[in-house]
Design a protein around this nucleic acid. Structure first.
Lengths: 226, 226
DNA sequence: TTCATAGTTAAGTATAGAATGAAGTATTCC
DNA sequence: GGAATACTTCATTCTATACTTAACTATGAA
């Protein structure tokens, strides 16, 4: 048991492979070349490392033409990477270090498969404020008014509740260190916003950008000034 | 940000340091010598590695005479190690591989600071069965009868609820892959059982043993045949 | 068909950093 | 006091494995 644990740790512990995992935390699949670029190494080298991660079942791969798309093979792997990201000490935000000095990734990013960062926290605050969700013993619950709200918003709560994965759970975000909504509801909200073009993913980064439409909608639905 | 993540990953990724973390997952503090023995290496080497883990704030240390006791410096670190342990593939349990063939650690162990393994899962099942706790959207809640039960059992719910840390949360155990109760209630139950000598910790292992008294009490309170 | 791109495989090298050996400081116990 | 134990520091050695160079297959486009 212990030796298997050590193997898993060593696998993620190599700098190049850690860089791969960091990139994949985004939740999207990346090609070998993209991963080589973001890890700043050669294609041969990344190929070797991806081989090891595949072998250990930490990643899975999908072939599309001459491209190969790599992603985490399951949630458990993402949890490891997220929990490691959570170890990173929060940077001191003094009046000198204005938000503008930080990369946008800090303010609007996805956390594996849900919305995290400042926007995720603000969104959660707004849902709490509007009593759409309520906090109870460090978990979130959807209120009865909340159920109506989600349905109006275009998200089928009953459907989501049927899914196996945790329905509505808090996720301690490593950049904000505040709970925000993860779970299937988090995923549904994220997808809804992507589909409706409130937000767009950026290439090669876990950051997302808010569109003009998104700005208006965030204000309207969540009273969030972007 | 990424480089800090990579450093953290590399820190845990070294085999000797991973072994240290594995041992500390127990939740207890260990001396440098104990860690050297369990990691099967020299005192000098363990000292070097402990220095690095301290430097990175993954561990903290408490001096007691000529001994130095090392432990995780916070919950976040334990979460990383637990989530990594969770990656270990569950061994196939066929009729040939009888439970007896597995080391006791699998059946009765602590999970950082609460009761895990078969006994932890059985305990949780019993609490659910007796409607002391109820499952709701993948989280646990204490019923009103449950509050009385805990008070009779000698655990002050109101006091526990005041504590900052998560009060009652499920923990996916890596050996059983079943939810069981973690959080402050988990800790209180564990401590109660240790104090009342239902169970005892074993040296140099995360396993715990059940005492004769414990056997009777587990049967009486939880209908668990040990 | 030819060229370009995406990715892999294999053999050889280089180096980071883990382990070792020797020598030191504290602390406890007799 | 002296011996034993717990732990650390530093200089040196060693080695696992990440990375490189080179040659390969496979897909797609011109």
């Amino acid at each position: 048991m212990e030796d298997q644990f050590i193997k898993a740790a060593a696998l993620i512990g190599d700098p190049t492979r850690a860089s791969i995992m960091w990139t994949l935390l985004d939740g999207r699949a990346f090609t070998a070349t993209e991963l080589a670029i973001s890890a700043n190494t050669s294609p041969q080298n990344i190929s070797m490392h991806l081989g090891k991660l595949l072998e250990a079942n930490l990643l899975c791969v999908e072939k599309q033409g001459r491209h190969k798309y790599y992603r985490f093979s399951n949630k458990e792997v993402a949890y490891v990477v997220e929990s490691m990201a959570n170890l990173i000490p929060k940077p001191e935000i003094s009046s000198k270090n204005k938000p503008e000095n930080y990369p946008p990734v800090k303010y609007c990013r996805t956390c594996y498969d849900h919305l995290a960062g400042k926007i995720g926290v603000a969104l959660t605050d707004s849902l709490l404020e509007q009593k759409i969700i309520i906090e109870k013993n460090n978990t979130f619950e959807i209120s009865s008014e909340g159920k109506k709200w989600f349905s109006d918003f275009g998200i089928n709560i009953e459907e989501a509740q049927k899914q196996k994965r945790i329905f509505l759970k808090p996720c301690l975000d490593w950049s904000e260190r505040r709970n925000h909504i993860a779970g299937s509801i988090g995923t549904l909200l994220l997808n809804k916003m992507l589909n409706e073009d409130w937000i767009r993913r950026t290439a090669n980064s876990r950051a997302i950008v808010i569109t003009g439409k998104g700005e208006k909608e965030f204000l309207k639905y969540f009273k969030i000034v972007v």
